[in-house]
């Protein structure tokens, strides 16, 4: 079964008098438990596609299905609910809420889901340990390194057991060692929990981890191929 599928997506942007095609008739299906990379140069449409998949942005036309839910037909509140319960996000930067501690950032999603405090606390501690930050629960983002911040973001993305994690350039601000550690963590979570990962990147090291590499250019998919990667083999 597909975790996600897009059918004939188009999206245009206007820059002054110029119209740019962000997505040009893009169709794609991603199976549950996949480890997929979207790659391409800046402006190729990978982030636009990722945002459309996650319901952060609406396409001009086309269909998006997350599981069996029609994302492209949802209103703002339903989109928020869909993201809350089904998708985990990891962004390039500004991933955490500065006034909350690491543990509170992880619990944030569970709090807006209305999960009781004792369950939240137990689960957030467990997940902090899983991403190797067991002793950092009381630290605020400013007191964490870039890599640690991304780990907290990953912990928050998976804490409510989403079917899908969308990551936009997650390693862009990390040094190579930290980037490798983060990708190892993604691969491990993909294998151990079966979470579907879709990662937009132009970092070659990240692409090495993917089982499926989709290349984009000018809003179009120019290649879509399986490859030996370190993610789960679906």
């Amino acid at each position: 079964m597909s975790a996600l599928s897009c059918n004939k997506l188009t999206k245009t942007f206007t820059q002054g008098s110029q119209t740019i095609k962000g997505l040009d008739d893009v169709s794609i299906a991603i199976a549950e438990g996949s480890f997929v990379c979207l790659s391409g140069p800046s402006g190729s449409g990978k982030t636009t596609l990722l945002n459309a998949m996650g319901g952060l942005d609406t396409p001009d036309s086309g269909e998006i299905l997350v599981g069996d839910m029609r994302v492209d037909q949802m209103n703002k509140s339903d989109l928020a609910d869909m993201r809350l319960h089904n998708i985990g996000f990891v962004f390039q930067s500004y991933n955490l809420i500065p006034v909350l501690t690491a543990q509170e950032n992880i619990e944030f999603v569970m709090q807006i889901q209305g999960i009781p405090a004792d369950q939240r606390s137990a689960k957030s501690r467990e997940i902090l340990a899983e991403v190797g930050l067991a002793d950092h629960e009381g630290r605020r983002p400013a007191q964490l390194s870039g890599g640690q911040q991304q780990r907290v973001a990953v912990a928050r993305a998976i804490v409510s057991n989403p079917t899908l994690v969308l990551a936009d350039e997650p390693t862009a601000n990390l040094d190579s060692v930290t980037a490798t550690q983060l990708m190892d963590l993604f691969a491990e979570l993909n294998q151990s929990r079966g979470i579907t990962f879709v990662i937009a990147t132009h970092d070659a090291r990240v692409m090495e981890y993917c089982r499926r590499l989709i290349k984009m250019e000018d809003g179009k998919i120019i290649s879509d191929q399986e490859q030996p990667g370190r993610g789960a083999n679906v």
């Binding site: 703002k76 609910d81 809350l84 996000f89």
Partner: peptide, 15 residues
């Protein structure tokens, strides 16, 4: 940006 992040994580506009 923080408001955008909270919305992306599933916080409804009214919240």
């Amino acid at each position: 940006r923080e408001i955008g992040l909270m919305m992306a994580l599933g916080m409804r506009p009214q919240w």
